[in-house]
Each structure stands twice: as C-alpha cells, then as structure tokens.
Amino acid sequence: AWPVSGAECTSQQIWESFSQCFTPAVKEVVEFAKGIPGFQELGQQDQVMLLKSGTFQVLMVRFCTLFNAEERTVTFLNGQTYPLSTLRALGMGTLLDAMFDFSEKLGSLGLEPDEMALFMAVVLVSADRSGILDMQAVEQLQEGLIRALRSLITRRRPDENTLFPKLLLRLPDLRTLNNMHSDKLLAFRID
C-alpha cells in the first residue's frame, strides 16, 4: 500500500502512487507463476518471456474487482478510491474505459476464487509466444490448464454450458488491453 492522502492530492501524487503500485503487484505475479504446476518445468527463458508478455493481463484479471462499473470509480491497492473523472485528468481515459468494460464482462461471470486463480494461470500461459523457445512445452502446459479450468467450471455448474466459452472470449480482450497499453508511461519519483 502506498500512502496517498485523498482528494487534496495532486495529479502528480496520484500518478506516482499509481506507478508505485505496480512493483509489488508484478512481484506477486512472478510468485504466482512459480506456483502453477508445470510452469517451472519450462525453460527459464520461456518462463521469463511468458511473464513479460502476460503479467499485465494477469494483473488486469486480478484487479478487476477494483473497478466499480456502477459508481465509475477505481480503488488503488492502498484502499484509496478515485472517481473516473479524476483519473481522466492523468490522461488515462481510453485505458480506463476499456478496463471498466473488461471488468464488467468478467465480473458478470461470477467466478469463484479458485476458478479466477486457474483462469489467471491460463491467461499467463496463453500470453504472446514471440521469443518462446519450446513452443510445444508451452502449448502442452496451456492445454492442461484449460482442461483443468473447464473441468472445474463444468463440475460446479453442470447446467451452465455457456460460461466456459464466455470466459475464453475474455482472452482476446486481455490481449487487446495489453497491446493498447503496454507503452503507457509510468512515473517514478527520483528522491
């Protein structure tokens, strides 16, 4: 959590706070990846490539509950909530609209925490394959995780057969978000 004190904060402080939030969050994705069965059996370069391509997407899934579509607010990791209007002043309008849209669609699926975690694993190993050395190993891992996710969801909801396809349709949404926004600048204060 990064202490940012509220409505009287400057845009600069909000931007710094936002940027600082990413560092611990990225480290947590690395730890999460190490816990995915089979991930550490991939070659190290492939692990690094998947993490570089997929981390933002995993974070987008993880933090989708921080976007309140009804109130049009975003809650940062320090618990501070900002209205969309304030964040637009940081030049993040298009990004936020796309994130709200994604969060609403994913939220409407009503996933349980274990389903969400397994979906995040699928997201990570489904990331862009540029630079991957052992494509077959990554594809096998992805297939296994997708099978596990399908099994988990359909066992729990045997009468609902549209949920899994709808969930998979979120993967291209995440790639679009990633491609549109990976070149956004973060600002870190030099003390």
Binding site: D183, L186, F188
Partner: peptide
C-alpha cells in the same frame, strides 16, 4: 522540484521480472 524517471509499463514489468530471475539464479 521533484524529478521523475519515466518508464513504459511494459519496460517496468520486464525490469522487475528480469531482476527477480537474476536474484534467484
């Protein structure tokens, strides 16, 4: 006046990941 360094989101993520793997070598 405060000074800042700027980094793209992608570069920031790459940097953290590279550091983490280097630390654990």
């Amino acid at each position: 006046p405060k000074t800042h360094r700027f980094m793209t989101l992608a570069d920031h993520i790459s940097h953290i990941i590279t550091q983490d793997f280097a630390r654990n070598q």
